[in-house]
Amino acid sequence: MNGAIIGYGTIATGHAIGYRQTDGINVTAVVDPTPARAEAARSAGLRAYATYAEMTAHENPDFIDICTPPDSHAGYIELGLRDGLHVLCEKPVLMPHEGGYDRLLGQIAAADTVFYPSHNYKFAPILTTMQQVVRDPGFGDVLSARFRTLRQGHAVGVPEWNPHWRRDPLIAGGGILRDHGPHSVYLATHLTGRTPLAVSCLTGALRHDGYSGTEDTAMLMIRCDDDVQIELDVTWSAGYRNSYYSITGSGGSVTVENDDVQYSLAGRLHRTTLPSNFDAPRHSDWFAAMFADFLTTTQHPERAAPLLAETLTTSLVIDGAYASAADDGRWVELTPAEELLTGVAR
């Protein structure tokens, strides 16, 4: 199966490496209007085009992989679905627009192709190890979770095109809550298996780096079914990098902090170290595993429905968090994604 990458920035180069490591799937073309990025793509052996229309006039891809900034995601999703292509999209996958998500969800539901979110943290080996512990029968019921992501600043894009676009609300749709927040939310729902019902959030700009239009710090409390509570902290204002994930169950617990894994099952404590690659900007090994899963999903399209629910849930939590933060952290009730998707005709 052949595809085209839309937008050839830092994350897209990681995608390109991941595709080369994945059997049965290949990327041959890139769409990027920036001459320097188009030349970078050609140097990597890819055919480059300035526009989507130019690419489809010369190529016949089976899928597109959207790696552009968030403000253009919806437009490219619609183009790919219109042309009968499978569509992958980088986070934040679904962005709120006037009228909510109904129009795009309807197009996804009506398509005969697969819509797939690039939720790559789910494929980090150290976090799949964490998932195995949580799913062990001895772990029991999930009681709570706490995730904490500390960074020393926002990720900087390629110098050839607006390297600080993540701090532009018109392009990014927000700050760290919209940029790194989705990783924390989809990981939390994926690893705990819980459904968010309400969210409370506080945000701030603590770094004082001149980017006052977007938040660099967010603290979320998420109430889930069965009275499970999830705490998520993300910041670009820290003095050091740190990635921390902890889940407590009725029969055990597991914590991942950077490259260290510690878990308790049946009264026994276990410790191990694994290369997390949390600090690798391209995550190419994670993408290889993700693309293999995407390929399997195109062969078994029934697997796409829970992924769409995960994607919508992530966006609804982020939207609710912004609404909460705008009202001093009040609790905002959330409608489960499955209920919203039930009303979308296929």
Rank of each mutant, 00 (worst) to 15 (best):
G3K: 04
G3M: 09
I5W: 02
Y8S: 06
G9W: 02
T10H: 13
A16G: 00
I17V: 15
G18C: 07
R20N: 02
T28G: 04
T28W: 01
P35R: 15
A36N: 08
R37D: 06
A44S: 15
L46W: 08
R47Y: 10
A48K: 13
Y49L: 02
T51G: 11
M55I: 06
D62I: 07
I66Q: 04
I66V: 13
T68K: 01
P69T: 01
A74K: 15
I77C: 09
L79N: 03
G80T: 11
R82E: 13
L85F: 10
L85V: 04
H86Y: 08
L94T: 04
P96M: 04
E98G: 08
E98T: 11
L104S: 00
L105K: 07
G106F: 01
G106R: 05
G106P: 01
Q107H: 09
I108Y: 00
A109M: 10
Y116P: 08
S118I: 05
Y121L: 14
K122P: 02
P125N: 11
T129Q: 08
T129L: 12
Q132D: 12
V134R: 08
G138W: 01
R146P: 03
F147T: 04
R148C: 06
R148A: 13
L150E: 09
R151N: 09
V158N: 13
P159D: 14
W161H: 14
W165C: 05
L170F: 07
G175E: 01
L177H: 05
S184A: 15
S184C: 07
V185F: 12
T189I: 15
H190L: 07
T195I: 09
V199L: 05
L206P: 01
G210I: 11
Y211T: 10
M219E: 14
D225I: 14
D227F: 03
D227V: 00
V228L: 04
Q229D: 08
I230T: 05
D233I: 06
V234R: 02
T235L: 05
A238E: 03
G239H: 07
N242S: 15
S243Q: 12
Y245E: 03
S246L: 06
G249F: 07
G252Y: 06
Q262G: 10
Q262A: 09
A266D: 14
G267D: 10
L269G: 05
R271Y: 12
N277R: 14
P281S: 00
S284G: 01
W286E: 04
W286G: 02
D293L: 10
F294I: 02
F294D: 04
H300Q: 13
E302F: 06
A304H: 03
A309L: 09
E310M: 05
E310Q: 13
L312G: 07
T314Y: 01
T314K: 02
I318M: 08
I318P: 10
I318H: 09
D319F: 01
E333T: 10
L334F: 00
P336H: 10
A337Y: 06
E339N: 15
L340D: 08
T342A: 15
R346N: 07
